[in-house]
Design a protein around this nucleic acid. Sequence first.
DNA 1: GACAAATGATACTAATATGGTATCATTATA
DNA 2: TATAATGATACCATATTAGTATCATTTGTC
Lengths: 135, 135
Amino acid sequence: MKLITRETDYAMRALVYMARPKNSLVSVAELIKELKFPRPFLRKILQTLKRRRVLKSHKGKRGGFLLARPPEKIFLVDLIGIFQGPIELDECLFKKKLCPDVNVCLLRKKLQKIEAEVVAQLRSISIGSLRDERN
Amino acid sequence: MKLITRETDYAMRALVYMARPKNSLVSVAELIKELKFPRPFLRKILQTLKRRRVLKSHKGKRGGFLLARPPEKIFLVDLIGIFQGPIELDECLFKKKLCPDVNVCLLRKKLQKIEAEVVAQLRSISIGSLRDERN
DNA sequence: GACAAATGATACTAATATGGTATCATTATA
DNA sequence: TATAATGATACCATATTAGTATCATTTGTC
Ligand code: FES
Ligand code: FES
């Protein structure tokens, strides 16, 4: 079972790389040179991040991407939300069918608790913190 | 993102249904009558549980399945292990490639912590506890 | 002993999610 | 105006999940 997919992971690492004091434009060419990700896949990922306002972009020659906000304010949980959908560990697989009572269901309550903890932990991980502790 | 798949969920509910004081044989016919799961799918699931020693079975006419141990000793985390493989939220997606140093990686440490918490919570959920709090 | 009702074993199929490519349009700069 | 970049979008490949189908084996009942 995976908590983060490859897409999320690529996104995260690209963002860590881009989290420079200067916050200048970084092109896909530069990123893949450094990170060795498949180019078109990374392109798609960055375009998604742009659409979701995590990155800004500049088109045309000498264009590229840059962070839309400080790396301390970009959290892993945001990236998971973008690439894997919202975390809903407690979602009931039975919905309308045989589900006894969603509000009373013990299993659901337990899973909700787990989810809350996971999200809290994930919120403590920012691109900034990951960059700072890179070795 | 799902913590438990449908297979795990079906297994869990079937086990809760079977967790009766008497622990007598229950046939697939009875289970699907009560739980409305797809018959061949449930059959496969129960056979897996048998193989993994969560259930015992009795073949032939009037046969069926019964719990191999008390419901208080069957945990959700066991079922996840059987149907979804071991929980490895912290698995590195880069392995040999660009992975800097598995032992130092901050992300990995954080994910390990999350995983430990999730597993601990999951261990507190047994078939017995789920049955007792059913409404 | 024959039949029926159950599980055992196993192979196959369908649907969905994930990982990744390919192509062409648009824009900015030199 | 050529070039180097992103924008948009459609497509393809692989893995996982969900489910079916079939036949063999066992066992209780008449
Ligand atoms: S069965 Fe639906 S919330 Fe528990
Ligand atoms: S990159 Fe491999 S453990 Fe962090």
